[in-house]
């Protein structure tokens, strides 16, 4: 049952990966990567139960945290780039 759930989560991640490759915008890719990140957290939790080692939950929390900070960092970076070239977006400056 848990193994089936783990496979299901992997399927979700694979589908999200297709979106990450297809894009088209950078935001679509980050959306997909963020989705893979939250699914990874669930996968680690399920795998912890599957292997009978619930201390994996600490790793899941750590991963969730790093994933969140990473996504926010990537988005801040995009906003900064979007705000920088004056000819395309003059209203930003």
């Amino acid at each position: 049952m848990l193994a089936a759930a783990a496979v299901g989560i992997l399927v979700v991640m694979a589908l999200a990966l297709v979106r990450a490759f297809r894009g088209p915008s950078i935001c679509d890719r980050i959306l997909a990567v963020n989705m893979i990140g939250t699914k990874t957290v669930l996968l680690i939790a399920v795998y912890g139960f599957l292997s009978g080692r619930p201390d994996f939950l600490d790793i899941a929390i750590t991963y969730a945290l790093i994933n969140f900070v990473g996504v926010i960092a990537a988005l801040k970076f995009i906003e900064r780039i979007a705000a920088s070239p004056p000819p395309t977006r003059p209203e930003e400056l």
């Binding site: 201390d55 750590t62 790093i66 900070v69 926010i72 960092a73």
Partner: peptide, 22 residues
């Protein structure tokens, strides 16, 4: 359990970096 100095250092820095980003 799983953990230790390296992960903890990264997490601590990540917390401050999140503050810097936001």
């Amino acid at each position: 359990g799983p953990g230790g100095g390296f992960q903890a250092g990264v997490l601590f820095a990540a917390g401050i970096i999140l503050y810097a980003l936001t």
